[in-house]
């Protein structure tokens, strides 16, 4: 699971580019991660320039 601070997001799609299973969808002003296909690799959290994404520690 990845936590998303949606109001901080700029919808730039840098995270989409690196996501191996293609489970992030960024539209004009929305971001969604499909938790069923997410493999918890955390690559998206490394790439985000403005700290929107973080691993859910639970």
């Amino acid at each position: 699971m990845i936590n998303i601070k949606e109001y901080r997001c700029d919808f730039c799609t840098a995270c989409v580019t690196v996501c191996p299973p293609d489970c992030i969808e960024v539209r004009e002003a929305s971001i969604k991660i499909d938790n069923d296909t997410c493999i918890d690799c955390n690559l998206c959290t490394y790439v985000c320039p403005i700290e929107v994404l973080s691993p859910d520690e639970e």
């Binding site: 799609t13 989409v16 580019t17």
Partner: peptide, 18 residues
């Protein structure tokens, strides 16, 4: 642009190495 999902959906490897 960078997200390049059209390519992925068509079967081209577009994901970028970290």
């Amino acid at each position: 642009g960078i997200e390049s999902r059209i390519g992925r959906w068509a079967g081209i490897k577009t994901q970028i190495n970290m």
